[in-house]
Design a protein around this nucleic acid. Structure first.
Length: 896
RNA sequence: GGGCGGUUAGCUCAGUGGUAGAGCGGCUGGUUUACACCCAGUAGGUCGGGGGUUCGAAACCCUCACCGCCCACCA
C-alpha cells in the first residue's frame, strides 16, 4: 500500500488522471453496447471562446450526470463539439486582422477572408476544448463535432432545401433588424432592448391647406424627417379631426405629406401627432402599409445618412445627424422645444450597436411544428427543470414570428440558392428608394431562384448570404451523431443549458426534432431531442451584476483551477448553485471547495495510517459500536436524500448533503469517537471501527466522484478500494442495519453527543483552555453509559470522567443539563455568583421553551387536531424540560 | 403594459405546515499524534410590510413595497 503524501496536490494529481482516463478510452461511447444508454450533447461553445464560469457551471453539471450514469452501469455518450458562430467569429477574426495585418475583410475579398478564418481557427480556435479537459470533463472526444464539418454543412443545406421545398422558407422584402456595425440582418431574438437617454424633439409641420398654421410633432429621431411620408393622428382626436385628409409640409426636403388617421396613434403621447417614417420604424411601416404610403430610405447600410438633398446631413452618422438635424430645424424656427426623454432602443446582442429597423430582402422561415413543440412540453414528454421555464417557452411559441435566417456575413453556411447571372443580386441590402409598401409583401420573382445545393450550371450565381448560426445549431442534437449512434443515443437524456438561450436553441431544437424526425420511428417520443432540460442559473458577481468582459468582473476559471484545483472549483461552485436561480459568485466559496478536498484527503490519510483497507469492506452488525451504527444510519439517510435530489437536478443539495455528512457526521463525530477503538488495545473492536471507516470512505468516494473526479480516483486506488478505476464502480448501496435496537442506540448516541457539547460549553464558559485536561462528573441513571466513558471522555478531552448518581452541586462545579442527566465540570477556582448567573440564564432559556410547549398542550384544538405523533413529541418535550428545570432549580438553590 | 423570479443572521444562501439552519465573516480558547485549507465554544434573526386560511405559517392564499430578469411597435 502506497503511503499517502502529507498534502494533497491537485496540480499533480488532476492532469495525471485525466491523461490516464483518455488513454484508457474511458469516456468513449460504444454504440453497439447492450447497456442502457445515457446521452448528452454539449451546448457547443463558440470556436473563438474561452472558458468562463458559466461554462464551468454548465459543464460540471453535465460531467456529474455523465459520470454518475457511467457508475450506474449505463452506456454514456457525452458528445462534445463547437459552434462556428458566424457573426461572432467573423468579428473576432476581422479584429485580429485589423490589429495584426492592418487589413479589412473587404481588402482581402471573400475567398481570401474565408481562408484566413480557417487559418485563424487552426491557430487560435478551440482553446476552450483544452480548458474543458482541465476541468475534468468526460466527453467522448473521439466524436467531437463542429457545426462547420463538411457533412454538417451539407446537412444544414439539405434542411434549407427541404424547408424551401415545403414552402416554409421564403424570400421576402420586409422590415428587419439591421445591425449597422456588423452590416447584417438579425433575428428578433438577437436584439436586446435597453433604456436609452435621449431627447424628444417637438417639430412644427406647416399645414399646406392653411399656411401659417402648424402641426406639432414629437419625435426622437429628427434625422429621419426626410423619410417621412405622412403625418398621422388618432381618428377620434378632436384636436385634429378637421385636418385628416389635408396635408402638411415636410420640414426637411419640403414635400407635401398626407395627414392620415390611424388607430395606432396614442393621443396621450407627445402632441398626439406622429410623423410616419415607414422605412425606419416597424410601427410606421405598418401604418404605411395600411395607408399605402411610399417608402423613403435615407440611411446607408453602415448607419450614415443617405440624403444628398440635405447636404448638411448627407453622409453623417445617424447620431451626429440627429444633433445636426435639430440644429437645422432650430435655425429655421421649426424646432419648438427639446425635452430629455428615455426610451427603449434595440441593440445588437453581438456588436452592441444600436439596431436600425430597415426594409430589406431576406430569407425567412415560417416555423413548422409550433403547436407540437408546445404540446410535448405541456404534456411533459420533455420536462423542464425548473418547471417555470415552461411558461416562458410557451409565451414565445404562442407569439412566434417568422425567423429571419439570412445574414450578410461571409463566415457561415452559404445559402443554397442560385440566381441567373444576368440578374443583379441584392445581397439582402435594400436600396429601395420610393417603392410602394404594398409591393413589399410580394417576394422576388420565384421563377428566377433555384434552391439546391449544387450550382445549376455556369449561368447561375449563388446567393452571397449565409445562414444564422442558430440555423445550424438547431440540428445539433442529432446531426452530431452518425446513424449507429443516433439509433442508440437519440433522443438524448438531458440537455443542460442556460435559460438565456431557451428561444435561440432549446425551442428551435425541439422544433427541428419534431419536423425532421431523426428518431427510430415517426412517434413524437422518438423524435424529441431530449427528455429533460435542466436550466442552470446565471453567474453574477458579488454585487449581483452579470459577468462581463467589459466590467472585468469575470474571474478566469483557469486561475481558479490553478489556485484551488479543478475538483475544488467544481465542488465549490456546485454547492452554491441553487437550481434555476442566479448565483452570486464569491471566490470564498471555491476556497471552501478546495478545503473540502483537503479534508477528504486528510480523512483518508488518517484511515490509511492504521493499516490497509479492505477492497470490499464489510461490517458485522453485531459488533458495531453505537457510534458506528449512528454514522452508518446517517450514511444511509444521505444516500436516500442524494437519490431524491438527483431526480430533481438539485445538485447543490447533493453537494451540501455530502459535505455535511462527511465533515460533520463522519469526521467531527464518528472518527473522533472511534479513536477510542483505533488507539485501543481491543483488536476486534479496532478492526470493526476500521471496517466502518472503510465502508464510509468507500461510499463517500463513490458518491463524490461525479463532483470531484480526480481526488476520488486518486484516493480510491491509494486506499485500495479497487484495482479498477472508480469511474465504473457501482454506486454504494445502503448498509443493512437490521439491528432491532437501532432506534434506541441512535437515541443514546444523540444523548452522548449532546452531553459532550454541554460539557465543552462548561469548559469554555469556565474559561478553561480546550487543551487542558479537566475532570468531569456525569450524573446519570442510564446504565448503558458506563461502556462509553472512554469515548465521552475523549470527546470532552477530559482528564477524568466519573459516573455518579448524586453529586452535591457547589460553586466549584459548573453544571449543565443533558439528555443523560447532569454534567459537572470539576474545577478548583469557582465563583458562586457567576455560577448562579449561568444557571439562571440556562433556566430562563428552558422556561421560555417550556412555556411554548405548555401553551400548545393547553390548547385543546392542538391536542385534538394535530397528529398524534406531534402531540406525543410535545408531551415528551414538556416532561424533559420540566425535569431539567427542576434539577437546575435545585442546583441553584443548593448554591446558597 | 403583460409574465416570471427574489426579499430568512453582517455576507452568500438552505429550509413547502409542527422547538428558525449552514458556510463565510466576528468574538473566545486551542501547535489534543489526519487536517491551522484545522479543532472546540460563542454572539448574531419580530424569516420585506399588512391581511387571511389553520390548533399551528418563513412555508399556503390575498395585497402592498422594493430588487432582478424576460416579453411587448407608444413616436
Amino acid at each position: 500500500m502506497a503511503e499517502l503524501p502529507k498534502t494533497y496536490d491537485p496540480a499533480a494529481v488532476e492532469p495525471k488522471w485525466y491523461a490516464r482516463w483518455l488513454e484508457a478510452g474511458a469516456f468513449e461511447a460504444d454504440a453497439s453496447s447492450s447497456k442502457t444508454p445515457f446521452s448528452i450533447v454539449i451546448p457547443p461553445p463558440n470556436i473563438t471562446g474561452t472558458l468562463t464560469l458559466g461554462h464551468v457551471l454548465n459543464n460540471t453539471i453535465q460531467d456529474i450526470l455523465a459520470r454518475r450514469a457511467r457508475m450506474q452501469g449505463r452506456e454514456v455518450l457525452w458528445l462534445p463539439g463547437m459552434d462556428h458562430a458566424g457573426i461572432g467569429t467573423q468579428t473576432a477574426v476581422e479584429k485580429w486582422l485589423r490589429k495584426n495585418e492592418g487589413v479589412t475583410r473587404h481588402d482581402l475579398g471573400r475567398d481570401e477572408f474565408l481562408r484566413r478564418v480557417l487559418q485563424w481557427q487552426d491557430k487560435h480556435g478551440g482553446i476552450i476544448i483544452e480548458q474543458l479537459k482541465r476541468l475534468g470533463c468526460s466527453c467522448d472526444w473521439s466524436r467531437q463535432r463542429y457545426t462547420f464539418d463538411a457533412d454538417y454543412i451539407r446537412a444544414v443545406q439539405n434542411v434549407f432545401v427541404d424547408l424551401y421545398d415545403k414552402g416554409l422558407i421564403y424570400r421576402g422584402r420586409r422590415m428587419i433588424n439591421w445591425d449597422p456595425a456588423a452590416q447584417t440582418a438579425l433575428s428578433d431574438e438577437e436584439v436586446i432592448s435597453k433604456p436609452q437617454q435621449g431627447n424628444l424633439y417637438y417639430v412644427r409641420y406647416e399645414i399646406v391647406e392653411a399656411p401659417g398654421k402648424f402641426l406639432e410633432v414629437a419625435t426622437t429621431r429628427p434625422e429621419t424627417i426626410m423619410a417621412d411620408t405622412a403625418v398621422a393622428v388618432h381618428p377620434t382626436d378632436k384636436r385634429y379631426v378637421d385636418l385628416i385628409g389635408k396635408h402638411a409640409w415636410r420640414p426637411l426636403v419640403r414635400e407635401k405629406l398626407p395627414i392620415v388617421a390611424d388607430d395606432a396613434i396614442d393621443p396621450e403621447f407627445g402632441t398626439g401627432v406622429l410623423k410616419v417614417t415607414p422605412a425606419h420604424d416597424k410601427a410606421d411601416f405598418e401604418i404605411g402599409q395600411r395607408h399605402k404610403l411610399p417608402i423613403v430610405d435615407v440611411l446607408h447600410p453602415d448607419g450614415r445618412i443617405n440624403c444628398p438633398a440635405v447636404p448638411e446631413l448627407d453622409g453623417l452618422d445617424r447620431f451626429e445627424a440627429r444633433k445636426k438635424a435639430a440644429e437645422l430645424l432650430k435655425g429655421r424656427g421649426l424646432l419648438l422645444k427639446t425635452e430629455p426623454y428615455e426610451n427603449n432602443i434595440g441593440f445588437s446582442d453581438r456588436s452592441e450597436a444600436a439596431i436600425e429597423p430597415r426594409i430589406s430582402e431576406q430569407w425567412f422561415l415560417r416555423y413548422p411544428k409550433t403547436k407540437e413543440a408546445l404540446a410535448v412540453v405541456r404534456a411533459h414528454l420533455i420536462r423542464f427543470f425548473p418547471a417555470h421555464w415552461e411558461k416562458v417557452y410557451a409565451q414565445w411559441l404562442e407569439n412566434i414570428q417568422d425567423w429571419c435566417i439570412s445574414r450578410q456575413v461571409w463566415w457561415g453556411h452559404r445559402i443554397p440558392a442560385w440566381y441567373p447571372k444576368s440578374r443583379s443580386v441584392e445581397a439582402g441590402v435594400s436600396s429601395a428608394k420610393q417603392k410602394n409598401a404594398a409591393d413589399t409583401a410580394a417576394t422576388t420573382e420565384e421563377k428566377s431562384i433555384r434552391v439546391q445545393i449544387e450550382s445549376p450550371d455556369e449561368g447561375w450565381t449563388q446567393d452571397p448570404d449565409t445562414l444564422d448560426t442558430w440555423f445550424s445549431s438547431w440540428l445539433w442534437a442529432y446531426e452530431t451523431m452518425d446513424e449507429e449512434a443516433r439509433k442508440k443515443f437519440y433522443p438524448t437524456s438531458v440537455l443542460v443549458t442556460a435559460p438565456d438561450i431557451i428561444f435561440f436553441w432549446v425551442a428551435r431544437m425541439i422544433i427541428a426534432g419534431l419536423e425532421f424526425k431523426p428518431g427510430q420511428s415517426d412517434r413524437v417520443e422518438d423524435n424529441i431531442p431530449f427528455h429533460d432540460v435542466f436550466f442552470t442559473g446565471l453567474i453574477r458577481d458579488k454585487q449581483g451584476r452579470k459577468m462581463s468582459k467589459s466590467l472585468g468582473n469575470s474571474p478566469d476559471p483557469l486561475d481558479l483551477i490553478d489556485k484551488y484545483g479543478a475538483d475544488g472549483l467544481r465542488f465549490g461552485l456546485m454547492r452554491i448553485a441553487p437550481s434555476g436561480q442566479d448565483i452570486r459568485f464569491d471566490e470564498k466559496q471555491i476556497e471552501e471547495g478546495r478545503n473540502f478536498a483537503t479534508k477528504l484527503w486528510n480523512a483518508a490519510r488518517f484511515r490509511q495510517m492504521h493499516g490497509p483497507s479492505a477492497a470490499a469492506p464489510k461490517i458485522n452488525n453485531r459488533s458495531l459500536a453505537i457510534f458506528a451504527s449512528e454514522v452508518l444510519a446517517r450514511l444511509n439517510e444521505t444516500i436516500d436524500a442524494i437519490e431524491v435530489a438527483y431526480c430533481e437536478y438539485r445538485f447543490n443539495e447533493v453537494a451540501q448533503r455530502l459535505y455535511d455528512f462527511f465533515w460533520r457526521d463522519y469526521c467531527d463525530w464518528f472518527v473522533e469517537a472511534a479513536k477510542t477503538e483505533i488507539f485501543g488495545e481491543d483488536e476486534p473492536r479496532k478492526k470493526s471501527a476500521l471496517a466502518v471507516m472503510d465502508v464510509v470512505l468507500s461510499a463517500v468516494l463513490r458518491l463524490l466522484h461525479p463532483f470531484m473526479p480526480h481526488i476520488t480516483e486518486e484516493l480510491w486506488l491509494l486506499l485500495g478500494f479497487g484495482e479498477q478505476s472508480i469511474q465504473f464502480a457501482l454506486p454504494p448501496e445502503k448498509i443493512a442495519l437490521e439491528d432491532v435496537d437501532l432506534a434506541k442506540k441512535r437515541k443514546l448516541v444523540t444523548a452522548v453527543y449532546d452531553t459532550v457539547q454541554a460539557g465543552r460549553n462548561l469548559r469554555a464558559e469556565a474559561k478553561i483552555p480546550s487543551n487542558k485536561k479537566e475532570r468531569f462528573v456525569l450524573c446519570t441513571a442510564n446504565a448503558e453509559i458506563a461502556k462509553e466513558v472512554p469515548t465521552i471522555s475523549r470527546l470532552l478531552n477530559a482528564g477524568q470522567l466519573d459516573i455518579a448518581t448524586h453529586i452535591r452541586h457547589t460553586a466549584d462545579t459548573p453544571m449543565a443539563m443533558t439528555p443523560l442527566g447532569e454534567i459537572f465540570l470539576i474545577v478548583t477556582a469557582g465563583d458562586k455568583t457567576a455560577e448562579r448567573e449561568r444557571l439562571e440564564k440556562e433556566m430562563a432559556k428552558l422556561e421560555e421553551e417550556l412555556r411554548t410547549v405548555k401553551g400548545k398542550l393547553e390548547n385543546k384544538s392542538f391536542v385534538d387536531r394535530a397528529p398524534a405523533a406531534v402531540v406525543e413529541e410535545h408531551r415528551q418535550r414538556q416532561k424533559d424540560f420540566s425535569e431539567q428545570l427542576a434539577k437546575l432549580k435545585a442546583a441553584r438553590d443548593g448554591l446558597n
